[in-house]
Design a protein around this nucleic acid. Structure first.
Length: 662
RNA sequence: GCGGCUGUAGCUCAGAUGGAUAGAGCGCGUGCCUCCGAAGCACGAGGUCGGGAGUUCGAAUCUCCCCAGCCGCACCA
């Protein structure tokens, strides 16, 4: 609601300035430092002062006196050295926020431009760890925020089922564990198969270190898997899908769902690369290096930031170019990624076939790519207007190369709308690594944090962390609500655990490296998900008690704001504190806009915490149910309801459920 | 070497597009449950915003130069 009014104010000021001073200026608005100074301020007169060669305060006085009335704005004041401060009509604002809170958010029409968000993308060869959780939590929250902002979103989780990491685990099963495909099939049907592979994968690293000649196995294994023929391919065909199901189950615990699993095997078998290769050659986006260290490779020249450089004939610069096709004729990961990115925009000229892979509890169908015999009822995937790739910051260079590839093909629009949704990694504090039983090298022990490594088996497994959180939460719930049946207790504990985990992963901005520590991640106090959830529970307790004490209370009366009563209650010292709460509750839309604009889910997390904090303050200062003045009681109930609705909505965007009790 | 990110309170981090007195959580200290639940609230201590120069009416924010740390720059993904 605030963002609507703010936009209106900006437009009105810009129009007024254009009319009176004949100047076109971009009007910047901001929040004044204190609530007594109004809700919106603009420093635009400092700008005007320069161009009109007059004192800013004088201009501000002129504007505030002459500005025509703006709907929703009660008065305008001059402040400081030349600020124009605007004051909202408080009661009317409350009424509109209350009305807005009852309306369901608008969904995107079926023909709206589509956004694709690709996230999670865990190699299907081991259990998911804390680093993967950050990717998935960020990606899923981006999806929720975009949908709430009225966008149509398709969620993809790319499965590299033919890569080195899967090959390594296959080597582990064949050469270390000495298992037959049938035996692996049986193991894959057991619970925690991903844990078994986690350990096996770490042992494969040691297996290679012991005898470097064993590396030859990797080439053979990879070739079998890529071609789809042979024993290794058969084994990979068992391992990868089984691990994918483990990952899906882990993510489902966190409330994360996908629409499509595009698999690398189909990109290979349906020869997506061949189509991309033809386009790249035709447009001279890549060329065959004739000499130098990359002789015999197809390379793409890029500048330092990954922009495609002119692909003129030459030799020396080829050494710095990015190899797309190796001298043995096989395509690199980046090449395949260019093909995949083209497909996402509908620019490849080829499509996958699809089959149903999984049905979620809410009825959503998860599809997987297949190379033949697809289901003709599959929806139309791909052909997006905007593509968000949720990938960690270390891969920025490669993402730039992919975009450079699109640009070199002349797809500048698609290149501009290819967004690397970048984020920093989750690392472990040295203390945490030791706690997990790892002995650190001297070098690592000195560092502020240690990188998680699936290859070394160093990391906090997602399901382990969730289990610990659920256990800790259950202990709290059992103590507070011994009367509740066990299944209800575990349900609440689950919600709290997810709240703590997702909030922990989302409260940091994307550029912050998270140094993981169990102490912080397991906390339910302070700036945490459970703190926000608890504020909702408090609000709900008020209404539960109200129903018990006054069953006849007309809940419908909460939907109608008495303007006269609200106006008087929103005045004065107490009025200001009420007003701050109303204003914050009416700012969710502003926060969503900011989160989409800056591509920063942490904005929503910060907002949820601030709103919870403001409500806790309100809760502490005002006793709602014992309020004698009936008009004031209705008002206090309206504020409580407003906060409940907005906080639940904010938490929903973070993928956090607010329980009825906790 | 080239490119990117980071440096704000004891610790972990917010301060998007320059704006009024730089904030939060944790930790520490002191208080607050006969009360809609204390997973809470209040108060307090704690800052050369890495350093320096510049642009500006105004800089934590923009520019340049240093310093420190991290990450990229594979015929791996």
């Amino acid at each position: 609601m605030v963002h609507v009014l703010e936009a209106r104010i900006r437009a009105a000021l810009a129009a007024h300035i254009r009319g009176v001073y004949n100047l076109d200026v971009a009007v910047v608005t901001e929040r004044p430092p204190r609530i007594e100074m109004g809700e919106i301020a603009t420093p635009v007169c400092f700008d005007l002062a320069k161009r009109l060669k007059r004192a800013p305060r004088q201009i501000a006085a002129e504007i505030s006196a002459q500005l025509p009335p703006i709907e929703g704005v009660e008065r305008v004041e001059v402040a400081g050295g030349g600020y124009v401060n605007l004051f909202f009509a408080r009661a009317a604002f409350l009424a509109s926020v209350v009305k807005d809170a009852e309306a369901a958010p608008a969904l995107a029409p079926a023909d709206a431009p589509k956004c694709i968000v690709e996230h999670t993308n865990i190699n299907p060869n081991k259990a998911a760890h804390i680093g993967h959780l950050r990717n998935a939590a960020l990606g899923d929250t981006l999806v929720r925020v975009l949908r709430r902002a009225g966008r149509r979103v398709e969620v993809q989780n790319y499965i590299d089922n033919t890569g080195v990491q899967v090959a390594d685990v296959v080597i582990g099963f064949v050469h270390i564990a000495k298992k037959s495909p049938a035996e692996v099939q049986a193991l894959a049907a057991q619970p925690k198969f991903d844990y078994l592979c986690w350990d096996l994968y770490a042992s494969v690293s040691r297996f290679f270190e012991e005898d470097k000649t064993r590396m030859a196995l990797r080439g053979e294994t990879l070739q079998s898997i890529e071609s789809g023929v042979g024993a290794a391919s058969e084994m990979a065909g068992i391992v990868a899908p089984a691990i994918v199901r483990c990952h899906l189950a882990t993510m489902e615990r966190l409330g994360i769902e996908y629409d499509l699993l595009p698999r690398e095997s189909e990109i290979l078998h349906l020869k997506f690369w061949d189509s991309a290769f033809e386009q790249l050659k035709q447009r001279n986006a890549i060329h065959l290096a004739a000499s130098g260290k990359n002789a015999g490779c197809w390379v793409m020249r890029t500048d330092d930031t990954g922009n495609a450089a002119a692909a003129a004939e030459g030799t020396s610069e080829d050494d710095d170019a990015k190899i797309i096709v190796r001298s043995n004729g096989t395509v690199t990961y980046v090449g395949k990624d260019i093909a995949y990115q083209l497909w996402k925009f509908g620019l490849l000229g080829k499509d996958f076939q699809y089959e149903k892979f999984h049905t979620y509890a809410d009825g959503r169908t998860l599809w997987s790519s297949v190379s033949s015999g697809g289901d003709s009822s599959a929806p139309a995937f791909g052909k997006a207007a905007i593509v968000y790739n949720v990938i960690d910051a270390r891969q920025a260079y490669l993402q730039n190369v992919v975009v450079a590839g699109l640009r070199a093909l002349g797809f500048n629009g698609a290149a501009d709308r290819s967004i690397h949704f970048s984020y920093e990694i989750v690392a472990l504090t040295p203390r945490c690594a030791r706690e997990l039983g790892y002995t650190l090298s001297e070098e690592d022990a000195k560092k502020p944090y240690v990188e998680v490594s699936g290859r070394k088996g160093l990391g906090v497994k997602a399901d382990d962390l969730l289990d610990r959180l659920e256990t800790a939460a259950l202990a709290e719930v059992a103590e507070r609500h011994p009367e509740l049946p066990a299944d209800e207790q575990t349900g609440i504990a689950h919600a709290i655990a997810i709240g703590a985990l997702r909030y922990f992963l989302l409260k940091f901005t994307r550029t912050a490296i998270i140094a993981f520590d169990f102490k912080d991640a397991l906390s339910f106090e302070g700036e945490t998900g459970p703190y926000c959830q608890y504020a909702v529970v408090r609000a709900r307790n008020i209404f539960r008690k109200l129903q018990e004490q006054e069953p006849a209370f007309a809940m419908a009366s909460l939907a109608r704001v008495d303007l006269a009563a609200a106006s008087s209650l929103l005045t004065g010292i107490d009025g200001n504190s009420f007003w701050e709460l109303v204003l914050l509750a009416g700012s969710l839309g502003t926060q969503i806009e900011a989160a989409v604009g800056a591509q920063e889910p942490a904005f929503i997390a910060k907002y949820a915490f601030q709103l919870a904090q403001a409500f806790n303050l309100f809760y502490h200062h005002h006793r709602v149910l014992t309020e004698e003045d009936s008009a004031k009681k209705v008002f206090l109930l309206q504020l409580s309801r407003l906060v409940e609705v907005k906080l639940v909505a904010a938490l929903e965007l973070l993928g956090i459920e607010a329980p009825e009790k906790m």
